[in-house]
Amino acid sequence: MSYEVPRAAKLLVEVQSKYIGIGAGRTHKAGKRCKVQRNPSNPGEFVIWFGKTEIAKVQALDLTSTIEYTDGRPQY
């Protein structure tokens, strides 16, 4: 499976993130801008990127209630 380019989005609810390689993270409030990408190793999961080293994972069924795409492309 190939990697898709992350899409611009904003959060609709608070999300707890973690730093890659470290168990620590923080909470991001609704309205925060982010990038969203499907997890290539687990198609039923999406990865929300906050910068280059901070991520959160969300199940595909919960994606529409967690983020809203802002790049103008249709949401699938």
Score class of each variant (00 low, 15 high):
residue 10 K to L: 06
residue 12 L to D: 07
residue 24 A to C: 13
residue 26 R to M: 11
residue 17 S to M: 11
residue 55 I to F: 05
residue 53 T to G: 02
residue 4 E to N: 09
residue 41 S to Y: 13
residue 65 S to K: 14
residue 63 L to R: 12
residue 20 I to D: 10
residue 59 Q to M: 04
residue 68 E to P: 02
residue 36 V to P: 01
residue 68 E to C: 01
residue 56 A to T: 08
residue 22 I to N: 15
residue 18 K to C: 08
residue 69 Y to F: 10
residue 53 T to Q: 04
residue 67 I to L: 05
residue 16 Q to D: 10
residue 67 I to R: 15
residue 72 G to W: 00
residue 7 R to M: 10
residue 6 P to F: 10
residue 41 S to M: 06
residue 7 R to Q: 13
residue 50 F to Y: 02
residue 59 Q to W: 01
residue 60 A to Q: 02
residue 53 T to M: 06
residue 39 N to M: 02
residue 1 M to S: 11
residue 17 S to V: 03
residue 73 R to T: 12
residue 33 R to T: 15
residue 49 W to C: 04
residue 57 K to P: 02
residue 59 Q to V: 11
residue 70 T to S: 11
residue 42 N to W: 07
residue 26 R to L: 05
residue 12 L to V: 11
residue 42 N to K: 09
residue 34 C to F: 01
residue 67 I to P: 13
residue 56 A to R: 07
residue 30 A to H: 12
residue 44 G to T: 15
residue 50 F to E: 05
residue 70 T to L: 03
residue 57 K to D: 04
residue 43 P to N: 07
residue 8 A to F: 07
residue 13 V to R: 14
residue 69 Y to D: 02
residue 55 I to E: 00
residue 21 G to H: 03
residue 53 T to Y: 01
residue 8 A to V: 03
residue 51 G to S: 03
residue 72 G to C: 01
